[in-house]
Design a protein around this nucleic acid. Structure first.
Length: 290
DNA sequence: AGGCATGTTACAGG
DNA sequence: ACCTGTAACATGCC
């Protein structure tokens, strides 16, 4: 499910649910995520209060009231479900009913328990996600953040940075935008959309980009992500936030998954082409994207 | 049955 | 040492 907009949506909804809750118990159904979740280590969380939730790129960080924090990545299929037996609203929502009926779902990997039978479930089908504990000292030098590029929605992501980074390099623009060390938070879907909006073909070598094209890519990155967040992210397959609410940005995809459909640009009669680049599907319009 | 899937990373080759 | 691209991870769906 998760590129930057989806992770941001999850972050915002979790903030409304688990802030200031104390972890009473942690249950590991299957600790074989990207990194092994060990019972002994995760038990250190018991008794700690969740004080703050942050997002960096596609990572979530839960800060506690002690010198211990949780770093989470949703991987490809990671999801959170929050279950609150006392909350009428959630009780009527889709996911509450689902969970209540089935008790536990198949891919519930790790479950955090709070007071009054409230719980936060980390569900991850493919197990590419992870949950890691750090103290502050370790966290500051954690390998995941070492080389991470700028956040796309900050002023650090700009044309000057872009031009400077590509000096002496010559890869294609699709791979560059997917490179988390160049810009952090984008993934396959949003890169496809951004390049279509910018009129740039995914195979374009970065050394051939004109200044105005770089500007367009930077602006369209910000615009696309902002709108996607506004619409609650994209729910392809089964993405949802912890309320079971679905994002709706997938309705606005111009190219992703639209092979053979007509290009959305007015006056363009071309159909969308699919091309695999570096093992990932790329979708683009041959007429509009140069 | 085979191909494909929103991500990351270890490794190979230049 | 740097740069780039590929394959692998685990699981399910079409």
């Amino acid at each position: 499910m998760p590129e930057l907009p989806e992770v941001e949506v999850v972050k915002r909804s979790l903030e409304k649910k688990i802030l200031n809750l104390i972890i009473k118990k942690v249950k590991i159904n299957d600790g074989n995520l990207r990194y092994k979740v060990k019972k002994q280590e995760i038990s250190k969380l018991i008794g700690l209060k969740i004080k703050k939730i942050k997002r960096r790129s596609k990572f979530l960080i839960f800060k506690t009231n002690k010198d211990l924090l949780i770093l989470i990545h949703l991987g490809m299929t990671g999801k959170f479900f929050f279950v609150n037996k006392k909350d009428k609203k959630i009780k009527t929502s889709f996911y509450y009913e689902l969970i209540d009926e089935k008790k536990e779902q198949k891919h519930d990997r790790v479950i955090f328990f709070f007071k009054d039978k409230q719980k936060l479930i980390f569900n991850d089908i493919r197990k590419f996600g992870f949950i890691k504990l750090y103290n502050l000292e370790q966290f500051i030098k954690n390998s995941h953040f070492k080389k991470l590029g700028p956040e796309p929605l900050t002023k650090n992501w700009n044309s000057r940075y872009f031009k400077n980074f590509i000096l002496g390099r010559n890869r294609n623009i699709k791979n560059l935008l997917m490179d988390q060390n160049f810009i952090s938070g984008l993934g396959n879907i949003y890169v496809n959309e951004i390049l279509h909006k910018s009129g740039i073909r995914p195979t374009r070598k970065v050394s051939t980009l004109k200044n105005y094209e770089i500007k367009k890519i930077v602006q369209n990155t910000k615009k696309t992500l902002k709108v996607a967040i506004k619409f609650g992210g994209s729910s392809i397959k089964d993405f949802s936030n912890e309320d079971g609410k679905k994002g709706t940005f997938q309705q606005y995809f111009q190219v992703y998954g639209r092979k053979g459909e007509k290009c959305s640009n007015i006056d363009c009669n071309m159909t969308i082409t699919k091309l695999v680049i570096s093992n990932r599907a790329s979708f683009f319009c041959k007429a509009c994207q140069k």
